[in-house]
Amino acid sequence: MKVMIRKTATGHSAYVAKKDLEELIVEMENPALWGGKVTLANGWQLELPAMAADTPLPITVEARKL
């Protein structure tokens, strides 16, 4: 699914347009965010693609819901 990742004042957030859902990312498998699992505030887990740590945000990526 397409997910937009952006930086907020409190960390990172994910927006899933198909579900009209925006949630804070509360847990990251990798400190650089990319190439691992993230957990959203509502409990969803997404697998993000591997990208460079300095990838500019906001960005829309293809993520997989676990």
Rank of each mutant, 00 (worst) to 15 (best):
M1Y: 12
V3N: 01
M4A: 07
I5A: 01
I5Y: 01
I5F: 03
K7C: 08
K7H: 07
K7N: 06
T8W: 06
A9D: 12
A9C: 09
H12I: 13
S13V: 14
S13D: 04
A14H: 05
A14M: 13
A14Y: 11
Y15P: 01
Y15L: 10
V16T: 04
A17N: 08
K18A: 15
K18W: 14
K19F: 15
K19Y: 15
K19H: 15
D20H: 13
L21C: 14
L21T: 10
L21K: 11
E23P: 01
L24C: 11
I25Y: 00
I25F: 03
V26A: 05
V26L: 08
V26G: 01
V26P: 01
V26R: 05
E27G: 10
M28R: 10
E29Q: 09
E29N: 05
N30C: 11
N30Y: 12
A32Q: 14
L33E: 02
L33D: 03
W34F: 10
W34N: 04
G35Y: 04
G35W: 04
G36D: 01
K37M: 13
K37G: 06
V38W: 04
V38N: 02
V38R: 01
V38H: 00
T39M: 09
T39W: 12
L40H: 01
L40I: 02
L40C: 04
N42C: 09
G43I: 03
G43C: 06
G43W: 03
W44S: 00
W44F: 06
W44N: 02
Q45I: 15
L46D: 01
E47H: 10
E47C: 14
E47P: 00
P49H: 04
P49D: 03
A50H: 13
A50L: 12
A50E: 12
A52P: 15
A53W: 13
A53H: 12
A53Y: 11
T55C: 05
T55K: 04
P56G: 07
P56S: 09
P56R: 10
L57I: 06
L57G: 02
T60K: 04
T60Y: 11
T60Q: 08
V61E: 01
V61F: 06
E62M: 15
A63I: 08
R64T: 12
R64N: 09
K65I: 15
K65S: 12
